[in-house]
Design a protein around this nucleic acid. Structure first.
Length: 815
DNA sequence: AGCACGCCGACT
DNA sequence: GTCGGCGTGCTC
């Protein structure tokens, strides 16, 4: 098989064909990383996806420079998974590769070269470039590929390196990886196989000739048996000068002890005792049995458990079972800041078998987790969506917590995929099971479960007989008419808050809109402050005293007079959370009201500080955006209020009502977690709105039935498949015409009623790019695959027009 | 995606 | 006279 299909970390579709040099044919395998030249002077780390012997017809394949792995870094399951993602989400393998791998695992021209140790170079047979490079390496030891450009012509670089690697003079240095190693602390332990064999006396006998080594061995063994959960720092061994590192090295060479590296802060968490699980309540037991049944039938599970029903508890049981079967677990969360509770409970029990993987890790930390996963060193990985790409072995269970959360499919980063749906597919490749958990499942998952494609498990009670909170609707219109209001608060609402505060309990006020005022408008001439990069009005932030664009982040100072007509009558419209916070502070001057939104939480540890403040009950009222719906599990919050609930529904999105329901239900879950006397006050102009009425009834089956009926009526998912194509360009005219053209091509291949648009995007210009959208509403079922091929065909036809090539296209499947 | 090549305007 | 803007084409 002298040819290989290589995926490169570029946003190009498909793979590239390279020739496998003869000496590499015995070692190369799909899933391994290789170094390949690309486009004149660049070198990339690519991945072998396929080996074959079809000589390309239209070009001459370049040769693979070297193979970087001894065994495939991408498992077979991952290769299947990547192919699926690429097919399903219409994205390139290169994009997936880019996203999936930590950058140290895909070094490019930043890759460093070094001389092989102990070599004698025969300069006679080198050409001039090769000599330059060797000489440069003798002086500098490490050189990256870009540096080489300074003294070797670009076109000669690859050939020169190639030839020197062939001659065994130089090699690739993984310097970047090693550079980070210093940040970790070395720990030591007795080799596990030694402990298993139990033939200690034999070992000690052999060590008798080396008393220092024997003592050291015993010292480590002692510490380890004393408390198996403790980690022994390598540096501690040598502290009193009794042992030296050579003693340790000898032991390590004999295979008796080994060292391992960990981040320091990771270990500090779980020095406590092991915690046994509390027993499950009756309803939890039933739920767990239902899950067991489902797994036996090879079905995945949607665990719909109301807030505080103890879903985590059930997860823990399943995790334990899974570990006992020798399988590993992936625990997915929408964002890593939510790990607190689950981590605390798991760490006590599983200690060093837990790993974390998320967007905030440094590159080296990511590589470290890769290594540990590959070595089967992590049993439970707590992670965000980017962890779907790790080289798992033995994966037995994936838990997707808060499965409805939109953080599972962010719109900003390509490739665009929904981690929840991808997890289901990935699990399939590993023959692993999935539990999707949520108090407010997405309509799609609910439907899937109700259709029998997954098992639906409903946990309808809070743990420990705690009652669910009660909902009450306040008619703000009536309150206004009878003059029983103060600002945005009805007197009834104020009264309820006061009562709660008088009882020394805490109150949450939800207002899901950042800033102080949405718009600052000139009363004389109507001027409003637009962002210069986007077609969006800027929001006034009083706390920071500036105007902010919530889309591109641009900031500007707040005008004192109208920049157009110099009038001083600037009017603020649209209520933001800062304003609600201000009102609350004025209404309850004797109580502490804190604000929680992305703007006030930007400072380091701001979140932690506020969290503690709430925990210590130094804060009485927490005013915040949707941020407060997550992770705030406190015992003394008894009242949740939503003064301007209508704003949750005024969003132009077919999921707006679902989102509103989810947000309201999630914040509601913060109330009365212990007392069972939680109360939710929804203040609205439309108390008769179905969504509010249904929330008040607190009947999940009914509200999902309502959502599903609406979706069916207007042909939205889960009854159709949505694909959205977004086109962007700096020139409005260009992208306008381009999208018209693409629209006409799509209409040529797809049924007329399936193609909607193109239309200007809701934000017509973002970051100086004009955006147009085409929405495809496609039927589910067999035809869908055909239609998707038609989409690909249309995009290809579109790409053939050179004038449109500079238009950026993003395709969102399952929009 | 990145990069080279090539063709037009505003500068030492 | 050139520097540098970006439109276009190509990468196994």
């Amino acid at each position: 098989m002298p040819y290989a299909q290589i995926v490169l970390p570029l946003n190009l579709k498909g793979s590239f064909t390279y020739k496998v040099p003869e000496e590499l044919t015995p070692v190369i395998q799909p899933g391994m990383r290789v170094l390949v030249p690309f486009g004149g002077k660049k070198i990339y780390t690519g991945i072998v996806f396929e080996l074959h012997d079809n000589e390309p017809e239209n070009f001459i394949a370049k040769e693979i420079i070297s193979v970087l792995d001894e065994s495939p870094i991408l498992t077979e399951e991952q290769i299947q998974f990547w192919n699926w993602l690429s097919d399903y989400y219409l994205c390139g393998l290169g994009e997936i590769y880019r996203f999936a791998f930590p950058s140290s695992l895909k070094l490019e021209s930043e890759t460093y070269l070094k001389l092989k140790p102990n070599i004698t170079v025969d300069f006679e047979n080198l050409d001039i470039n090769e000599m330059y490079l060797i000489q440069a390496l003798e002086v500098r030891q490490l050189i990256n590929l870009s540096d080489i450009e300074a003294f070797i012509p670009k076109k000669e670089i690859i050939r020169t390196i190639n030839s020197l690697i062939d001659l065994q003079y130089i090699e690739i240095d993984e310097k970047i990886t090693e550079k980070y190693k210093a940040k970790e602390v070395a720990y030591v332990k007795i080799n596990e196989s030694v402990l298993d064999n139990q033939n200690l006396s034999e070992i000690l006998l052999k060590l008798n000739k080396a008393p220092k080594q024997r003592d050291l061995f015993l010292f480590i063994l002692d510490k380890q048996t004393e408390n198996p959960d403790i980690h022994i720092k390598k540096s501690d061994l040598f502290q009193d000068g009794h042992f030296g590192s050579s003693h340790f090295k000898s032991l390590s060479d004999k295979g008796l002890v080994e060292e391992y590296y960990m981040q320091k802060d990771r270990i500090e968490g779980y020095e406590g005792e092991l915690e046994e699980l509390e027993e499950l309540s009756e309803s939890q037991k039933t739920a767990k049995e239902e899950i067991d049944e489902a797994f036996e039938e090879n079905k995945n599970v949607l665990l719909h458990g109301v807030t505080s029903s103890g879903k985590t508890h059930i997860y823990l049981e399943k995790i334990e079972e899974c570990i006992n079967e020798g399988k590993n677990i992936l625990f997915l969360l929408p964002e890593i800041s939510l790990t607190k509770q689950i981590t605390q409970r798991l760490e006590k029990k599983y200690g060093r078998q837990i790993g974390f993987y998320h967007q905030k890790l440094t590159d080296f930390e990511r590589v470290e987790v890769w290594r540990r996963i590959k070595q089967n060193d992590i049993k439970i990985l707590i992670a965000t969506r980017n962890a779907l790409f790790l080289p798992y072995r033995n994966l037995g269970l994936i838990i997707v917590d808060e499965e409805h959360d939109s953080a599972y499919k962010p719109r900003e980063v390509s490739p665009f995929f929904n981690a929840r749906d991808a997890a289901l597919v990935l699990a399939g490749f590993y023959n692993a099971k999935v539990i999707l958990g949520s108090a407010t499942p997405s309509v799609e998952s609910y439907y899937r479960a109700r259709k029998g494609k997954m098992k639906y498990v409903f946990l309808n009670e809070r743990f420990g007989d705690v009652k669910l909170p009660e909902y009450e609707l306040i008619n703000f219109k009536e309150a206004q008419e009878s003059k029983k209001v103060s600002g945005n608060f009805s007197l009834q609402l104020i009264d309820e808050i006061r009562k709660t505060l008088d009882d020394k309990n805490q109150v949450i006020v939800l207002h899901n809109r950042r800033g102080y005022a949405n718009v600052v408008e000139c009363e004389s001439c109507g001027y409003v402050n637009y962002c210069s990069n986007c077609d969006v009005v800027m929001t006034y932030h009083k706390a920071a005293n500036e105007m902010k664009c919530h889309y591109c982040g641009q900031r500007a100072s707040k005008p004192k007079t109208c920049p157009k007509c110099y009038s001083e009558n600037l009017n603020e419209r649209g209520v933001g959370v800062e304003q609600i916070h201000e009102e609350v502070s004025k209404l309850f001057p004797d109580h502490v009201a804190d604000r929680m939104d992305v703007d006030s939480m930007r400072k380091k540890f701001a979140y932690e500080k506020l969290y503690e403040k709430i925990e210590d009950r130094e804060t009485d009222i927490i005013v915040g955006t949707q941020m407060i719906s997550k992770g705030l599990d406190f015992d003394h919050i008894e009242l949740v209020t939503i003064p301007k609930a209508d704003s949750l529904l005024y969003v132009q999105d077919f999921r707006a009502e679902e989102r509103a329901y989810q947000l309201i239900t999630q914040v509601s879950g913060r109330a009365g977690r212990v007392s069972g006397k939680g109360k939710i006050l929804i203040q609205t102009y439309n108390p008769d709105h179905s969504v509010f009425q249904l929330i008040k009834m607190n009947d999940a089956a009914k509200i999902y039935k309502y959502f599903l009926t609406e979706r069916q009526k207007f042909l939205y998912p889960p009854f159709t498949k949505l694909v959205m194509i977004e086109l962007k360009h700096r020139k409005e005219d260009r992208v306008n015409r381009g999208s018209q053209f693409l629209g006409s091509v799509l209409r040529k291949y797809l049924p007329e009623e399936c193609v909607l648009g193109p239309e200007k995007a809701q934000i017509a210009r973002l970051n100086n790019l004009y955006q147009f959208q085409i929405l495809l509403k496609l039927p589910r079922g067999k035809n869908y695959e055909k239609f998707k091929e038609m989409i690909l065909l249309s995009l290809k036809e579109f790409d053939e027009i050179t004038a449109y090539q500079s238009i950026k296209k993003d395709v969102f499947v399952d929009f």
